[in-house]
Amino acid sequence: MKANTSVTAFTRLEFETRIERARAAMTRAGLDAIVLTSAANVEYLSGFETQFAWVTPSRPWYFIVPRTGEPAAIIPDIGYSNWRSTSWCGNVMTWPSPRPADEGISLITDHLNGFSRRFGKVGFEIGPESRLGMPVSDLFRARAALALEIEDCTMLMAGLRAIKSPAEVGRIRHICNIAGRAFAEVPATVRAGDSEKDIYRRFAASLLVKGADEVPYVAIASGQGGYGSIIMPPTNRTLRKGDVLILDTGSKCAGYFCDFDRNFSFGKPSADVARVHAALWHATEAGIDAARPGRTAADVFRAQADVLISHGFEVGNVGRFGHGLGKLLTEHPSNAPGDETILAPGMVLTIEPSAMFTGGIMAHEEDVVVTENVAEVLTPRSSPEIEIVAC
């Protein structure tokens, strides 16, 4: 399997283990097969690597894993050589695509109808936080032609991907280190008079130069004494003394994301800014400490919220204080009230408290992996004091 040269390639055993875990989960869920169409899930089980498949809606790509028997790729002709050079799965069927009248649906239904059945059900990605990688009308056509009931397999796959292998954790640690080095250079490479777009482009370029394969997400916001959003794209706003700047990146290397942010004060921070930044840092510490086996995602939220409340801050309106991380920027579970997902070794989480105050909103974020004991922080840990850009 090909991989970024700076990280270790996944072994065949890694993929065999994933397939067997998927089959065990399918038996528990009462599914005879799963049909995967999303980039994260196809890549996770097949090892397939491509950019082309996921940036155009013209051609759907399918990976089918039966509860018993050989997995199969059903893909457009144009992707055959790409598949064979990157995936361990040699059972490949193709069709000449684009062909809207039949984008592989006849191949899929014939293949699925030929399976031996125990449960009479097949899983598609149609549940929470899913994006179906095929036209919905084709799903309806498949349902009409199949001798199987269609069920959701989204949460089945989310549960599998939530527990990372050591090799997966190594990839996330690697991209966290790359982003950490890019963040460390910000105070020396930005200045009053730069626009948000200037800073955004410089930061994204730094991430790529340092080894990121992709920079799909960089949020940036700024304002006097705080900012109003943590999910904004760059604007032409010019930074000046007294501003607070946030940069938040979801960068990728070898198929895995980091997701963390850093705040910067242009000149000496106000007392309010210093106070909220320190409170967020301590809330993050509490979240890191709560990320232990046997605790829940809701426990991680409450640990952070309790610290913020004790410092006199509102907990904000984002709905959660972090989430799973891996093949996607945001994965299962959510560190939120009501998410009683039990944490287990191998889970990678973001710890992400935010607080409302007179200057607007501020947020802080680190990435951790749950171990047998305490959580390991994968990101270069920030200081309790906000970093200062000289003005």
Rank of each mutant, 00 (worst) to 15 (best):
L329V: 12
L329R: 08
L329P: 00
L329T: 14
L329K: 11
L329C: 13
T330V: 15
T330L: 09
E331L: 07
E331V: 00
H332Q: 08
H332S: 14
P333Y: 01
P333F: 02
S334G: 10
S334N: 15
S334W: 13
S334F: 15
N335L: 05
N335D: 08
N335E: 05
A336I: 08
A336W: 01
A336D: 06
P337V: 13
P337S: 08
P337H: 02
G338A: 06
G338P: 10
D339W: 04
D339P: 09
D339Q: 12
D339I: 02
D339C: 13
D339F: 06
E340M: 12
E340L: 14
T341K: 03
I342V: 15
I342Q: 09
I342R: 15
I342H: 04
I342S: 09
L343K: 01
L343H: 02
L343T: 00
L343A: 04
A344H: 08
A344T: 12
A344S: 14
A344M: 12
A344N: 07
P345S: 08
P345R: 11
P345Y: 01
G346S: 04
G346M: 11
G346K: 06
M347L: 09
V348Q: 03
V348L: 09
V348S: 01
V348F: 04
L349S: 07
L349E: 04
L349T: 02
T350M: 11
T350K: 06
T350G: 12
T350D: 00
T350P: 01
I351T: 05
I351E: 01
I351W: 07
I351S: 05
I351G: 01
E352I: 02
E352W: 00
E352M: 09
P353L: 15
P353Q: 11
P353C: 14
S354M: 14
S354K: 09
S354P: 00
S354I: 10
M356I: 13
F357S: 04
F357L: 11
T358R: 15
T358D: 11
T358I: 13
T358Q: 13
T358Y: 08
G359E: 05
G360L: 07
